[in-house]
Amino acid sequence: MDGKQPCIQLHRVSVVFSDEVAGLRDVSLRIERGEFIYLCGQTGSGKSTLLKVLTREVAHTSGKALIDGRDLAEVKPTDVHLLRREMGIVPQDFALLPNRRVWENVGYALRAIGKTRKEVRHRVPEILEQVNILHRADAYPAELSGGEQQRVAIGRAMISSPPLLIADEPTANLDLEHSMGIMELLRNLNAKGTTVIVATHDMPIVERFPARVIKMEFGRVYRPDDEERGDA
Protein backbone atom coordinates (compact mmCIF):
# COMPACT_ATOMS: atom_id res chain seq x y z
CA MET A 1 0.00 0.00 0.00
CA ASP A 2 3.03 2.27 0.11
CA GLY A 3 2.81 5.28 -2.12
CA LYS A 4 -0.99 5.45 -1.80
CA GLN A 5 -2.72 8.16 0.20
CA PRO A 6 -4.75 6.86 3.13
CA CYS A 7 -8.47 7.04 2.58
CA ILE A 8 -9.42 6.47 6.21
CA GLN A 9 -7.34 6.97 9.33
CA LEU A 10 -8.61 6.31 12.82
CA HIS A 11 -6.42 7.03 15.79
CA ARG A 12 -7.55 5.77 19.20
CA VAL A 13 -11.20 6.34 18.35
CA SER A 14 -13.71 5.51 21.07
CA VAL A 15 -17.45 5.70 21.17
CA VAL A 16 -18.65 5.65 24.75
CA PHE A 17 -22.39 5.53 25.36
CA SER A 18 -22.18 5.44 29.17
CA ASP A 19 -19.68 4.61 31.92
CA GLU A 20 -20.16 0.91 31.30
CA VAL A 21 -21.19 0.75 27.64
CA ALA A 22 -18.83 1.54 24.79
CA GLY A 23 -19.33 0.87 21.09
CA LEU A 24 -15.68 1.32 20.23
CA ARG A 25 -12.57 1.40 22.43
CA ASP A 26 -9.32 2.95 21.23
CA VAL A 27 -9.69 1.82 17.64
CA SER A 28 -6.76 2.70 15.39
CA LEU A 29 -6.66 1.71 11.75
CA ARG A 30 -5.61 2.91 8.36
CA ILE A 31 -7.29 2.09 5.05
CA GLU A 32 -5.56 3.08 1.86
CA ARG A 33 -7.26 4.53 -1.15
CA GLY A 34 -8.42 1.76 -3.49
CA GLU A 35 -8.20 -0.99 -0.85
CA PHE A 36 -10.75 -3.76 -0.34
CA ILE A 37 -11.31 -4.36 3.36
CA TYR A 38 -13.30 -6.87 5.33
CA LEU A 39 -14.49 -5.75 8.73
CA CYS A 40 -15.17 -8.99 10.55
CA GLY A 41 -16.49 -9.84 13.97
CA GLN A 42 -19.41 -11.26 15.84
CA THR A 43 -22.62 -9.38 16.47
CA GLY A 44 -21.87 -6.64 19.01
CA SER A 45 -18.17 -6.56 18.17
CA GLY A 46 -18.37 -2.92 17.07
CA LYS A 47 -18.45 -3.33 13.26
CA SER A 48 -21.66 -1.37 12.80
CA THR A 49 -20.59 1.33 15.24
CA LEU A 50 -17.36 1.74 13.32
CA LEU A 51 -19.28 2.10 10.05
CA LYS A 52 -21.60 4.60 11.73
CA VAL A 53 -18.62 6.67 12.85
CA LEU A 54 -17.43 6.77 9.23
CA THR A 55 -20.86 7.82 7.98
CA ARG A 56 -21.28 10.27 10.89
CA GLU A 57 -24.44 8.58 12.10
CA VAL A 58 -22.60 8.30 15.41
CA ALA A 59 -20.10 10.84 16.69
CA HIS A 60 -16.95 9.44 18.26
CA THR A 61 -16.36 10.59 21.82
CA SER A 62 -12.56 10.58 21.71
CA GLY A 63 -9.68 10.04 19.30
CA LYS A 64 -9.26 11.26 15.74
CA ALA A 65 -11.13 10.03 12.66
CA LEU A 66 -10.08 11.25 9.22
CA ILE A 67 -11.56 10.52 5.79
CA ASP A 68 -9.46 11.84 2.94
CA GLY A 69 -7.66 14.01 5.48
CA ARG A 70 -10.92 15.56 6.69
CA ASP A 71 -11.45 15.40 10.45
CA LEU A 72 -14.93 13.95 11.03
CA ALA A 73 -15.21 15.78 14.35
CA GLU A 74 -15.04 19.06 12.43
CA VAL A 75 -17.79 18.22 9.96
CA LYS A 76 -20.73 20.44 10.91
CA PRO A 77 -24.14 18.76 11.25
CA THR A 78 -25.30 20.89 8.31
CA ASP A 79 -22.48 19.45 6.15
CA VAL A 80 -22.94 15.76 6.97
CA HIS A 81 -24.90 15.25 3.75
CA LEU A 82 -21.91 16.48 1.73
CA LEU A 83 -19.68 13.96 3.50
CA ARG A 84 -22.17 11.19 2.67
CA ARG A 85 -22.12 12.09 -1.00
CA GLU A 86 -18.44 11.17 -0.92
CA MET A 87 -19.34 7.63 0.09
CA GLY A 88 -21.83 5.00 -0.95
CA ILE A 89 -23.65 3.26 1.87
CA VAL A 90 -25.30 -0.13 1.42
CA PRO A 91 -27.46 -0.94 4.44
CA GLN A 92 -27.96 -4.48 5.64
CA ASP A 93 -31.70 -4.53 4.89
CA PHE A 94 -31.36 -3.10 1.31
CA ALA A 95 -33.83 -0.31 2.27
CA LEU A 96 -35.61 -0.32 -1.08
CA LEU A 97 -38.95 1.41 -1.50
CA PRO A 98 -41.45 -1.41 -2.07
CA ASN A 99 -43.96 0.68 -4.04
CA ARG A 100 -41.41 1.96 -6.56
CA ARG A 101 -39.83 0.12 -9.45
CA VAL A 102 -36.11 -0.60 -9.61
CA TRP A 103 -35.37 2.43 -11.78
CA GLU A 104 -37.58 4.61 -9.57
CA ASN A 105 -35.69 3.52 -6.47
CA VAL A 106 -32.44 4.72 -8.01
CA GLY A 107 -34.12 7.73 -9.59
CA TYR A 108 -35.63 8.76 -6.25
CA ALA A 109 -32.19 8.81 -4.63
CA LEU A 110 -30.85 10.90 -7.53
CA ARG A 111 -33.75 13.34 -7.20
CA ALA A 112 -33.16 13.52 -3.45
CA ILE A 113 -29.60 14.75 -4.00
CA GLY A 114 -30.81 17.43 -6.37
CA LYS A 115 -30.48 15.86 -9.82
CA THR A 116 -32.94 16.99 -12.48
CA ARG A 117 -35.37 14.70 -14.27
CA LYS A 118 -33.16 14.87 -17.34
CA GLU A 119 -30.09 13.83 -15.36
CA VAL A 120 -32.11 11.00 -13.77
CA ARG A 121 -33.16 9.72 -17.22
CA HIS A 122 -29.54 9.77 -18.30
CA ARG A 123 -27.91 8.33 -15.15
CA VAL A 124 -30.31 5.58 -14.06
CA PRO A 125 -29.61 3.18 -16.99
CA GLU A 126 -25.88 3.74 -16.56
CA ILE A 127 -26.02 2.88 -12.88
CA LEU A 128 -28.27 -0.15 -13.37
CA GLU A 129 -25.97 -1.38 -16.13
CA GLN A 130 -22.98 -0.97 -13.80
CA VAL A 131 -24.55 -3.32 -11.25
CA ASN A 132 -26.01 -5.70 -13.87
CA ILE A 133 -29.67 -5.14 -13.06
CA LEU A 134 -30.78 -3.04 -16.02
CA HIS A 135 -32.83 -5.98 -17.37
CA ARG A 136 -35.05 -5.76 -14.24
CA ALA A 137 -35.46 -1.97 -14.30
CA ASP A 138 -39.26 -2.13 -14.38
CA ALA A 139 -39.64 -4.72 -11.63
CA TYR A 140 -40.79 -3.95 -8.11
CA PRO A 141 -38.46 -4.99 -5.24
CA ALA A 142 -40.84 -7.79 -4.20
CA GLU A 143 -40.40 -9.33 -7.64
CA LEU A 144 -36.61 -9.51 -7.25
CA SER A 145 -34.40 -12.13 -5.62
CA GLY A 146 -32.33 -11.10 -2.59
CA GLY A 147 -29.23 -10.84 -4.76
CA GLU A 148 -31.02 -8.62 -7.25
CA GLN A 149 -32.32 -6.39 -4.47
CA GLN A 150 -28.78 -6.10 -3.14
CA ARG A 151 -27.58 -5.05 -6.61
CA VAL A 152 -30.19 -2.29 -6.66
CA ALA A 153 -29.07 -1.16 -3.19
CA ILE A 154 -25.44 -1.11 -4.39
CA GLY A 155 -26.47 0.77 -7.53
CA ARG A 156 -28.27 3.35 -5.42
CA ALA A 157 -25.16 3.72 -3.26
CA MET A 158 -23.15 4.45 -6.42
CA ILE A 159 -25.31 7.35 -7.65
CA SER A 160 -22.66 9.95 -6.78
CA SER A 161 -19.84 7.75 -8.13
CA PRO A 162 -18.28 7.86 -4.66
CA PRO A 163 -14.62 6.93 -4.09
CA LEU A 164 -15.63 4.94 -1.00
CA LEU A 165 -18.28 2.21 -0.71
CA ILE A 166 -19.39 0.92 2.68
CA ALA A 167 -21.48 -2.26 2.71
CA ASP A 168 -22.95 -3.60 5.93
CA GLU A 169 -23.36 -7.41 5.76
CA PRO A 170 -24.09 -7.40 2.01
CA THR A 171 -24.36 -11.20 1.86
CA ALA A 172 -26.17 -11.75 5.15
CA ASN A 173 -29.54 -12.63 3.62
CA LEU A 174 -28.29 -14.32 0.46
CA ASP A 175 -27.53 -17.87 -0.57
CA LEU A 176 -24.01 -18.75 -1.69
CA GLU A 177 -24.66 -18.23 -5.39
CA HIS A 178 -26.08 -14.75 -4.92
CA SER A 179 -23.43 -13.92 -2.33
CA MET A 180 -20.77 -14.78 -4.88
CA GLY A 181 -22.42 -12.57 -7.46
CA ILE A 182 -22.54 -9.63 -5.05
CA MET A 183 -18.92 -10.13 -4.05
CA GLU A 184 -17.93 -10.24 -7.73
CA LEU A 185 -19.74 -6.96 -8.20
CA LEU A 186 -18.00 -5.35 -5.22
CA ARG A 187 -14.63 -6.61 -6.44
CA ASN A 188 -15.32 -5.14 -9.89
CA LEU A 189 -16.17 -1.76 -8.36
CA ASN A 190 -12.96 -2.00 -6.34
CA ALA A 191 -10.98 -2.84 -9.45
CA LYS A 192 -12.27 0.39 -11.00
CA GLY A 193 -10.74 2.35 -8.09
CA THR A 194 -13.47 2.46 -5.45
CA THR A 195 -12.31 1.81 -1.90
CA VAL A 196 -14.63 -0.87 -0.52
CA ILE A 197 -15.29 -1.70 3.13
CA VAL A 198 -17.43 -4.76 3.74
CA ALA A 199 -18.65 -5.54 7.24
CA THR A 200 -19.35 -9.26 7.42
CA HIS A 201 -19.22 -12.39 9.52
CA ASP A 202 -19.55 -14.61 6.45
CA MET A 203 -16.11 -16.26 6.67
CA PRO A 204 -16.55 -18.61 3.66
CA ILE A 205 -16.98 -15.55 1.48
CA VAL A 206 -13.93 -13.90 3.03
CA GLU A 207 -11.89 -17.00 2.27
CA ARG A 208 -13.19 -17.23 -1.28
CA PHE A 209 -12.47 -13.55 -2.05
CA PRO A 210 -9.32 -12.85 -0.02
CA ALA A 211 -8.50 -9.29 1.04
CA ARG A 212 -7.22 -7.54 4.13
CA VAL A 213 -9.33 -8.38 7.15
CA ILE A 214 -9.82 -6.10 10.13
CA LYS A 215 -11.17 -8.24 12.91
CA MET A 216 -13.15 -6.66 15.69
CA GLU A 217 -13.91 -7.95 19.14
CA PHE A 218 -15.57 -6.20 22.07
CA GLY A 219 -15.29 -2.83 20.37
CA ARG A 220 -11.57 -3.20 19.65
CA VAL A 221 -9.55 -4.07 16.56
CA TYR A 222 -8.07 -7.53 16.84
CA ARG A 223 -5.57 -8.55 14.20
CA PRO A 224 -1.97 -9.50 15.00
CA ASP A 225 -0.86 -8.62 11.43
CA ASP A 226 -2.28 -5.14 11.74
CA GLU A 227 -0.77 -4.62 15.18
CA GLU A 228 2.63 -5.34 13.72
CA ARG A 229 2.16 -2.46 11.28
CA GLY A 230 1.77 -0.05 14.16
CA ASP A 231 -1.89 0.35 13.49
CA ALA A 232 -4.54 -1.78 11.95
Binding site: R84, A112, I159
Partner: peptide
Amino acid sequence: SIMKLVGAAR
Protein backbone atom coordinates in the same frame (compact mmCIF):
# COMPACT_ATOMS: atom_id res chain seq x y z
CA SER B 1 -33.48 7.14 5.84
CA ILE B 2 -32.64 6.61 2.15
CA MET B 3 -32.40 10.36 1.68
CA LYS B 4 -30.00 10.55 4.60
CA LEU B 5 -27.96 7.61 3.29
CA VAL B 6 -27.43 9.10 -0.14
CA GLY B 7 -26.59 12.54 1.23
CA ALA B 8 -29.74 14.51 0.54
CA ALA B 9 -29.57 18.08 1.88
CA ARG B 10 -31.63 18.92 4.95
